[in-house]
Each structure stands twice: as C-alpha cells, then as structure tokens.
Design a protein around this nucleic acid. Structure first.
Length: 182
DNA sequence: GCTATGATCATA
DNA sequence: ATGATCATAGCA
C-alpha cells in the first residue's frame, strides 16, 4: 500500500517524530471495517532521561518494545478502562515514544477521537496491537493526503506528575478535535 | 502472592 | 471532586 510511513520516519529523535506525526493518517483494518483518523495531537515521551516516561526506570516486560524497533505500537491499559496508543521512535536500542492523544475522525470511526482513551476506543485499538508493526499489517500510519502547512501549537504534557513543565505536547492549532488542556 | 496506583473520562 | 476497573510494578 502506498503512502505508509517508512521505518526511517520513526528512527529519528522522538520530538521530531511527534511533531511530524501531526496531520498523518492512522489506518486500522478492523475486520470488514477500515477505520481511519487524522492525527491532531501528540506528546513526546523521551527515554531513560524523562521522569514522566514509562521507560524511565528501565526496561520491564511492559516497556520492552520501547527499547526495540522504531515504528512499532506501544499500547497499554490505563486506569483499568482506557487504552493508550503510542508509537516507538528513536534508533533501535534507544527508548522513546510518541503518545497519540487525539485524532480527527475520517471514516468508520464511532464517537469522537479527542483524548487518548477515546481515540483508541473509536479506532478499536486494544492490547492485541501491542508491538504491532506500523509499517505493515492491520494498523498503519500513512502520509497525509494533502500536505497542508499546519499551524502547530506547543504546550506542556497533560496528566503527568513529573517534568510537567517540559513543552513536549504538539497539536494542530485551532483544530476542534484537540483535547482540552487541564 | 499481595497491594497500590495510573500518560483517563463521564458524571455530579 | 469522585468513581469505574485492571494490568503492571514493587515488594514480601
């Protein structure tokens, strides 16, 4: 399939990947349905130097994918109710990931996609997608159809207690699907 | 084995 | 401000 982001897109600094992911299209082939959405909000989580990142305290069974291949999905369950979708960045062997916080619904999306918990529910993302390769298979991220010049906003990350002041959240300015700040 | 807790959201 | 609800991590 054409337009899918290549491995080289992901094997770059986490912050660059987070910013460049804005406007890209998530495609999930979910049985008969093909659910698609446009990324409008992301957050960068650096590796072992970022106190707010899951990778901060080293590799565990859950975080092992963060230290592995870039371009794979890191999915986890939060608060017992919501899944969060992340994309592994950085070179192989270096931890780093991008949390997808919000999408703009494009096709076959039930409900709205603003907020990390709601977006995974809308796209049908579950723990089954843990470690999935985003350059092939059922869950992929594609190049934007139009290469608009996006106006990008930057702010501190949301919902964390450590390193709250680091401006690592990126969003499409003025887009109504961007989740509300706290 | 046991327990506390969290990168959330909806409701009040 | 609080409850829903469970995989994971840290500790015994």
């Amino acid at each position: 399939m054409r337009g899918i982001l290549k491995r080289s897109f992901y094997s770059r600094p986490t912050i660059d990947v987070a910013r460049d992911l804005l406007g890209k299209i998530i495609v999930h082939r979910d049985g008969d349905q093909t659910r698609t959405g446009r990324i409008v909000e992301t957050e960068a989580y650096l590796g072992t130097s970022d106190p707010a990142a899951h990778a901060y305290r080293g590799a565990t069974p859950r975080t092992r994918v963060l230290f592995g291949h870039p371009g794979h999905a890191y999915v986890y369950l939060i608060y017992g109710m919501y899944h969060c979708l992340n994309v592994v960045a950085e070179e192989e062997g270096t931890a780093g990931c991008v949390l997808i916080r919000a999408i703009e619904p494009v096709a076959n999306v039930t409900g709205s996609g603003n907020g990390p918990g709601r977006l995974t529910r809308a796209l049908g993302i579950t723990l089954e997608h843990y470690g999935a390769d985003l350059t092939q298979g059922n869950l992929t991220i594609r190049e934007a159809a139009k290469r608009d010049q996006l106006e990008i906003g930057i702010s501190p990350r949301i919902g964390i207690r450590e390193a709250v002041d680091w401006p690592l959240r990126f969003f499409v300015a003025g887009n109504s699907h961007v989740s509300r700040a706290r």
